[in-house]
Design a binder for these strands. Structure first.
Lengths: 200, 200
DNA sequence: AAATGGTTTAACCAAATGGTTAAAGCGAAC
DNA sequence: GTTCGCTTTAACCATTTGGTTAAACCATTT
């Protein structure tokens, strides 16, 4: 175990606690304990809970949303792009399964957090819109609003992960192995589903 | 304004506050204020925050999940069933847009809540599985695991609502009217998307 | 009209919580 | 080795929070 510096330890501990418990449910004492430091030291580095939370939220958001845009460019065939995007994104979520719901939930409780983030990250999805519209013009895919296609792909990727407890319990009688098996299969089947839906 | 009895007022106030703020973010004092009563009276009716929360959570869950199953039986054609299901479900969500994320979030923080609920509600999705498998045998739709089809339909319905702030901000430059327009359109387009994807 | 019993309230309590203070540690510069 | 300045800690503080208590209220019964 390498000794990390205090600031690093704090951010990592804060990520763990905030993502697990949310802003309202997290406790500064728990973050301090998790980081192996004094609560006063925590406040020495980050003046308030809100400030520390903003750092964690920004990191979580950055790790998910901009990658989403990048995963969609590249030189390949449009359908291959969709396949690659789904696989890349599902792998990303698999590694951090609690981040999507963390972002969604905190944003639903305070949508204002977005305004400062978007201007700072300046996300440009126009290129993705262009690619989709091009395919529609080429008649390789059916007429669909670019936004709607993106929403559909994201829905299919993200929802089954954030709703895992319900899906696993109700649809798989509680068996995690069966849930996991389907999730593995979906790395390819989501793209096939989408392609079947839009192919001309 | 009709005078409701105290218990009713409490549950309604608790629903509002818990669904808006979550278990950790809600305050018993706020619920009492919202109900127009004393905090001691709140504890007179519901011994603890957790007990009151369980009542609210059960109500929210009941209003969503069992209706989901019911919305899928009926005598019509399978594709019509999908169309009707999506429209029914989207209308339900439209009326209570914060409930899905409330359920998803509280369940992700404490999946244990489900075990007591499922035995009490005894939800049986087998009929839906049967209908889907029948269609596959009749070759009206492509081979797909029933669970996966259900997940796909639910994903397309629920995700855009729970992720509204992100979708609206990133995909629609913040314009709620454009977001709303797409959501309205989706009451029919989701079903078309799904049908195109599975039709043989 | 007095007793009864469920309902409602003001006042209170202990624990938890975010945050502060003042002093102690401690490595680098002189 | 003493000073300087950043880092770390123990002790502390004010407020918030879930929950309790004892008394007041009030409609019904007798």
């Amino acid at each position: 175990m390498i000794e990390k510096n205090t600031e690093e330890k704090i951010v990592q501990a804060a990520e763990k606690v905030f993502i697990e418990k949310g802003l309202a449910g997290a406790r500064m004492q728990e973050i301090a304990d998790e980081a192996g430091i004094n609560k006063a030291l925590l406040h020495y580095y980050y003046r308030s809970k809100e400030k520390l939370f903003e750092v964690v939220f920004k990191l979580a958001f950055k790790s998910f949303v901009p990658n989403l845009v990048k995963a969609f460019d590249g030189p390949e065939d449009f359908f291959t792009k969709i396949e690659r995007f789904v696989e890349t994104y599902l792998n990303l979520i698999e590694k951090n399964p609690h981040i999507p719901i963390f972002i969604i939930n905190e944003l639903s409780k305070n949508p204002n957090r977005l305004v400062s983030l978007i201007s700072y990250l300046n996300i440009d999805i126009q290129p993705i819109f262009d690619v989709i519209e091009e395919e529609i013009e080429k008649k390789t895919i059916k007429q669909i609003e670019p936004q709607e296609l993106i929403i559909n792909i994201l829905s299919l990727c993200v929802f089954p992960i954030v709703a895992k407890p319900m899906v696993q319990t109700i649809l798989f009688k509680g068996y995690e192995s069966e849930y996991n098996a389907l999730m593995k299969k979906r790395k390819s089947s989501i793209a096939q589903f989408v392609i079947s839906a839009i192919k001309n």
